[in-house]
Simulated scan of single mutants.
Amino acid sequence: MTKPGESWVVMIHLETDHVTAEAFALALAEFTDAQMEFEIREDVWAAKGYAAEKPDLSGIETVVAIVAAGLNMDTPEVTLEHLNPIDWVARVYEGFKPIHLGRFYIYGSHLTDPLPASIFPLEINAATAFGTGDHGSTSGCLLALDDLLKRRRFRKVLDVGTGTGVLAMAAVRAGCPMAVATDIDRQAVAVAKENIRQNRLQHRISTGWSNGPSGGLIAGQSPYDLVFANILARPLERMSRDLARQVAPGGYLVLAGLLNRQAARVNAAYRRQGMVLQRKIARGIWTTLVIRRPG
């Protein structure tokens, strides 16, 4: 019988590109409760999955062999390891270190150290800390914001795919009067609302669910002079027309969640909407695009 807190990790030992590792991670979906591809070192990826009950190793090995054959590559080794009960909240707290990006300082709600001077502090609930600034796409957006704010002020900000709400909060904390933050994931909306409340910014940030960049909450304040969309490359391409329409003449659009090799394709989609690339920010394998609407 599995004890409370116990789990198992299945490791697929690879040294490959991100897309290939993702294919192997997806192959674990039938056998594990959570799957992920992860970076071993820059641009080199592997895959693993976690299960609450002991998974079928022979079944996993069979599926992995099928995937490898389909990709015309050697079958990678698969290992299964038992994990003892872990205090996951304590583990998350331990792993979430403060992040300093430009003038922004992002720290966990569990920390009590004095804040650095001359910064814009943002408190994030560490127990639900996805999108805290440590990821290359989020950090690229924060660096883009820090740079843009040195040149001009923004009155209205839109954050599409807000996650923890960190980008909307950063913009408002740095002096923008108001922001709208939306996400397609209702759990993310709940997390963002809580983080915004913790930072006492709820009176300046409107938060809600939206399936795309043209919902009612977004339309009510459109157009915006600064728009963030930290999602993924394909949705960014599909939404290029609607997102571009949310940007006021002379306004900026910051796009993230795309791999370096996807940047040119995404930029081309927005160039067709009349948008002009201003800057590219590379953070490891991730690229952030800063685009301007002429006017």
Rank of each mutant, 00 (worst) to 15 (best):
E37Y: 11
L158F: 02
E61I: 12
R283L: 14
T132M: 00
L253V: 10
L243P: 02
I231Y: 10
Q278Y: 12
A117W: 00
M1Q: 11
L111Q: 12
G284N: 15
T162K: 09
Y252N: 13
A29D: 15
K156S: 06
I184W: 03
T138Y: 04
Y224V: 10
S214L: 07
P223Q: 04
L253I: 12
T162N: 09
S206K: 08
A179Q: 05
P76E: 04
G208V: 00
R292I: 15
K193Q: 15
A47S: 15
S222W: 07
D225W: 08
Y270P: 06
T62K: 10
Y224T: 06
R152V: 01
G220Y: 12
F130M: 00
L277P: 05
A188V: 03
S137R: 00
Q198E: 06
R155Y: 09
A29W: 12
L201T: 00
F104T: 02
E94H: 13
A282L: 08
E194H: 12
G274D: 07
A171I: 03
I205V: 07
R153N: 06
P98K: 09
V89K: 08
V266C: 04
T112V: 05
A244E: 02
G108Q: 02
G220C: 05
R200Y: 12
R204M: 11
A269L: 08
V247R: 09
A144F: 04
D225F: 11
A23V: 06
Q273N: 04
D159V: 01
I291P: 04
V92W: 14
T112M: 04
V266A: 08
R283V: 11
P98R: 10
N84H: 07
A264G: 07
F24W: 04
A190Y: 06
R155G: 07
A264C: 07
E42I: 12
K156G: 00
T62N: 14
L289N: 14
E194I: 01
Y105D: 02
D17V: 01
R153D: 09
